[in-house]
Design a protein around this nucleic acid. Structure first.
Lengths: 349, 349
DNA sequence: GTGAAAGCGCTAACAC
DNA sequence: GTGTTAGCGCTTTCAC
C-alpha cells in the first residue's frame, strides 16, 4: 500500500480533500481548469491511489462481483469466466472466483460470504431448480444473475436468468441426427434434476415426436441415480455410458451428449469398443468448447454464444448494482446454433 | 449487507464493542465464560457478520489473494485456478481472478490494482524473464509468488518461484522419442522469450546431445517472430506448425510440443495432412491436462503435479502475508513425470 | 476481565 | 467553486 492519502494530495495541490474527491468521482464539471490541473499533477507526482476499503466503508459498495461456477477446470466454465472477467474489467470491476463443485451448500456459503463482504452482485452458475436459499439476500438487495438456468416457478421476482434456449438446442441436435437417417437414438447425461438437463432432454424428446418417433423408445443413460459426478468426471461418465449403451442388444446408432466434455468421453468409449465415430456411431455434443474443433474427429455440436452471454450477464448485474434498486426479473434465452463437423454421419445399416 | 454492527451486538450482550472484538479476533483467553457465552448468543441472534471493509480499513489487510493467469479459458490455467482457490478457501481466503492474455502491461496494471486494493499476496503466472515492473510493490511489502517460471538473474531477493523442472521434463520427452528410434525431431512452440519455452527447448537439446545427435539439426518452429499468439490460439498454432513441418523436404518423424493444447493442434495438423499419429508421426505434449487422456489417440505427455504446485503456491503466499515480513526468496522445482499413452510410437521407415 | 476513545481514508452534505 | 465536517464499522492501545 502506497500509503499516500487524499489529504496529502490536497495539501500538495493546495486544495481541500473534497476537491480531490470530487475530481476522483467525476464531479469535475464546475471545477476551475487550473485547480483541476493542480490536483491532477499532485496525484501524479505522489503516485496516489485511492484506498478502496475506505471508499467501500463509506459508500457500502465495492467494485467487485462474485462468480460462482461448478469448476473453472472445466473449459466451458473457464471460457465463461474469462469472458465475464473481460466484461467486468472494462467497467472497472474485479471478479472473485468461487468453485462450487455443484454442491448446493457450498453455493449458498459462497454467496453469503460474498454478500457480507460487500459484494453487490453475483453471477451464479447453478442449474439447481430452486434458488430458494439465495433469496433472503436478494431480498436485502443482492443483485443475482443465474446463468445456465432458466426461470422456474417460485423464482424471486427480481431474479435475472441467462441461458441458452436449451430445448431448441437439443431439438436441433436430435433433428440433425434424424435427418441423417438415424432412428435408434440415445441421450447421455450425468446428474438428473438439473434444470438444463431437463430442458435438453425435453428438446430431444420433442424432436423425436416431430419425426413421428416414440420418445419412450429412446435410450436414456443418466449415470446411475445415486452418483453425483463432479463437473470434470462428466467425460469419464460419457465413456462409461458409451460402453454400456453399445453393449445393449439393440445399440444406438447416434448419441446426443449433454455437453461437449461428455461427448468427448462418449467418443473415447466408442473407440474403446472398437467402433468408428460417425461411420458406426454418430455423436453430437453441446456448448462448442474450443476443444470440440480440435478433437478427432472434430465434434458436431450446439454452440452457445458465450461471449455475448457473459457480456449480458455482467451488464444486468451492473445495472442492478449501480441503480441500487432491485433488478427487474427477466429471462434471456440465447439462440443456439448447430455446428456440423465430422462426428456425425448418415445412418448406414 | 446485513447492516448489524458490532455496537448492536455489544448492546445486546451488555458489554462493550471491544469485548466483542476481542472474542472475534481470538483473544477470548482471559474472558469470563459467562461473558463469552452472552456475546456468542448475541452474535447468533442478530446474525452478525463483521464488515470486512471496516476491518480492512483498520488493519490494512484483507483475506484475498490475487491470481493472474494468461487465460482461464485454457484448461491448464483453469485447473490451476481451481486448485489454488481450493487451497485458499481452506484458509478462509478468496481469490480474485485476472486474465492477462500474456500482456506484460496488463500484468503490471492488474498487480498494481490488486496491491492498492489491499491485497497482500499475488500468484503471478507469467513466464516473462523479467518481473522488474512488479518489484516496487514487492519492496513495499507485497508477497509475490511467480508460478510457471524459474528464478532469473536479477530477481528480487524475496521472490518465490514455483514451477516444474522444465529442463528435465523436456529432456524426458525427447529421450522417450529417441528411445523409440526417432532421429528427426521437431520442437514446436509459440512466442519465443518466455522462460519456460527456453527451458523446455534446453531440455530438448540436452536430450539430443545425450544421444549423440546435433541439436542444430533439429527442426524448430516458433510461430514466426512477429506473432504474439494468445493462450488459446496455441492449438491453432500447433496445427499450422504441423502443416508447415510436414511439407518440408525432410519432415520430422516425431514432434515435441510446448504444451498439450499445442500438441492437440499438432495432432489435428497431422491428420489434416492425411497422416496418422504415432504410426506416421509421434507427438508428445506437456502438462497432462484432462483432455490429454480423452484425445484420440490419447496423448503421451509430461505431467505437472498441479494440485501440489497450487497448494505450495498458496502456502508460501500465506506465510508471506501473515508473517508481515518479506518472504524468503526461493525456488521450488517440481518433478515432471513422463506419461506414455498412444500418440507416440516406434520409428518406422 | 472489561471499557473508552481515537482514528484507518474516504465521501457527501452543507456552508461559504 | 471550494472548504468544513461528520461519520462509515472496526481494532487497539491504554485505563480502570
Amino acid at each position: 500500500m502506497a500509503g499516500v492519502t487524499i489529504y496529502q494530495v490536497a495539501a500538495e495541490a493546495g486544495v481541500s480533500p473534497s476537491t480531490v474527491s470530487n475530481l476522483l468521482n467525476g464531479r469535475a464539471g464546475r471545477m476551475l481548469p487550473a485547480t483541476r490541473r493542480r490536483v491532477e499533477t499532485a496525484i501524479e507526482q505522489l503516485g496516489y491511489r485511492p484506498n478502496r476499503a475506505a471508499r467501500q466503508l463509506r459508500t457500502g459498495r465495492n467494485q467487485v462481483i462474485g462468480l460462482v461456477v461448478p469448476s473453472v477446470a472445466n473449459p466451458f466454465w473457464g471460457t465463461f469466466a474469462r469472458h465475464l472477467e473481460a466484461a467486468a474489467l472494462e467497467a472497472g470491476y474485479h471478479v472473485l472466483l468461487c468453485n462450487s463443485e455443484r454442491d448446493p451448500e457450498r453455493e449458498r456459503r459462497y454467496v453469503e460470504e460474498l454478500w457480507s463482504d460487500g459484494i453487490g452482485g453475483v453471477v451464479l452458475c447453478s442449474s439447481l431448480p430452486s434458488l430458494e436459499h439465495m433469496m433472503p439476500m436478494v431480498g436485502e438487495g443482492l443483485s443475482l444473475v443465474a446463468f445456465d438456468r432458466t426461470a422456474q416457478v417460485g423464482d424471486h421476482e427480481s431474479l435475472v436468468n441467462i441461458s441458452l434456449d436449451n430445448v431448441l438446442g437439443a431439438r436441433l441436435a436430435a433433428r440433425h441426427l434424424i435427418e441423417l437417417g438415424h432412428r435408434r437414438l440415445a441421450f447421455v447425461s450425468g446428474a438428473l434434476g438439473s434444470v438444463n438437463r431437463r430442458e435438453r432432454f425435453r428438446g430431444f424428446s420433442d424432436a423425436l415426436e416431430d419425426a413421428g418417433l416414440d420418445p419412450a423408445d429412446a435410450l436414456v443413460w443418466s449415470g446411475g441415480a445415486d452418483h453425483s459426478y463432479g463437473d470434470l468426471d462428466v467425460a469419464g461418465l460419457g465413456r462409461t455410458a458409451a460402453a454400456e449403451l453399445l453393449a445393449e442388444p439393440d445399440p444406438p446408432t447416434a448419441i446426443v451428449a449433454i455437453n461437449d466434455m461428455c461427448a468427448l468421453g462418449v467418443c473415447a468409449g466408442i473407440r474403446d469398443a472398437g467402433l468408428r465415430i460417425a461411420s458406426d456411431v454418430s455423436v453430437i455434443g453441446f456448448d462448442d468448447i474450443v476443444l470440440a474443433d480440435l478433437a478427432s474427429p472434430p465434434l458436431t455440436t450446439i454452440r452457445q454464444p458465450l461471449a455475448e452471454m457473459a457480456a449480458a450477464a455482467f451488464a444486468n448485474l451492473r445495472t442492478g448494482i449501480e441503480s441500487g434498486t432491485p433488478m427487474h426479473g427477466q429471462s434471456l434465452l440465447m439462440r443456439p446454433e448447430l455446428v456440423i463437423r465430422e462426428s456425425t454421419g448418415p445412418y448406414s445399416t
